[in-house]
Amino acid sequence: MDELKLLREMHDDVPGVTDAAVNQGREQLLRRMDPERSGAQKAKKKHRRKALRIAVMSVATLGLAAALVAGNVIGVSRPQGLASADAAEVLNNAAELTIKTADPVVGPGQFLKVDSTNLWLSMMGAHNPPDGVGAHGEMEWLDTEKMSLYIPANRDQEWVWERSGRIPTTFFDEKSKEFALNQAKEMGDTSELLKGVGGAFYNSPSSFPDEKDMAAYSRDPRMLLDGIYKRTAGAGQSADGEALVYIADLLRTGMVPADLRAALYKAAALIPGVSVTDNQATLDGQTGIAIGRVEKASDFRQDIIIDPATGQLIGEREVALTDRGSIPAGTAVGWTTIRTTVVDSAP
């Protein structure tokens, strides 16, 4: 028995399609071929819209998956150039402040608690092909999910993960709002309280970075960045963009020790195209400086937001720079804010 054979047998017991459904589908197809046929439906010509190429975040991950669908494959080449001078200054300052910060000590029996608020993009409809015929057309809205992850002092012990489930919170048109709220009502409460030894939730190996991985990253910014380019080779829309996404993903786990956080900031300062994108960026009520990079291939911008006074990471976000369906240009279509504390017990 191998994993493929097992997979081939999974959900193998679905009932066959009814003849009625087959006939109905056939009838729909015939009507499309000949609009005069029953009902004299006029063939609606949908306007062509630029394909929106965002992968909907997997519900079951903390969001370690990159948000952009892998596009052009780009080999590892050592890029030239640096972040803009002002971005480098903010990042290097934040690194200096961070290195002086003592990480909270998690004593025996205690937990590192990572609270996060996450905004996810939800899309429905046949967005690729862009002129696909969806029963509901294209719809988009944003969901919020709050999570608390309790990591035991001894990371081999049981972790606890509270998840609120995705709750639709931000809408751009009435049609999507109605659909999203109805769907949410239908789904009911999707909150979860998960437990997993060693961070292995959903009966799957842990997807969180472990202490060994953290220790293995170089603390030299150049070497660290080169390592990240190697790890992300071929992913994302561009090598530089993917490197920044990787850094943002790692930082937002809330599990990165201070010396590595400092090195990651300095590494980000070495990425070409990174600049200060917003001096007064507010995310979930907290204000900081946004450092980011525009991905020209997809017209998205990845930002990391830092509190300049403390060097602490407030969060990260992904901003759409052009209209995406009903979502206006300039909207943050995904973000995460984190807060870490040490607590004595987990639920």
Binding site: H11, L29, A135
Partner: peptide, 21 residues
């Protein structure tokens, strides 16, 4: 149907061929 259940599958089946056409 194996991925998303029967009810979704009926829609997907019909829509696939409309889009394809």
């Amino acid at each position: 149907a194996r991925r998303a259940g029967e009810s979704a599958a009926e829609d997907v089946m019909a829509e696939t061929f409309l889009v394809a056409f």
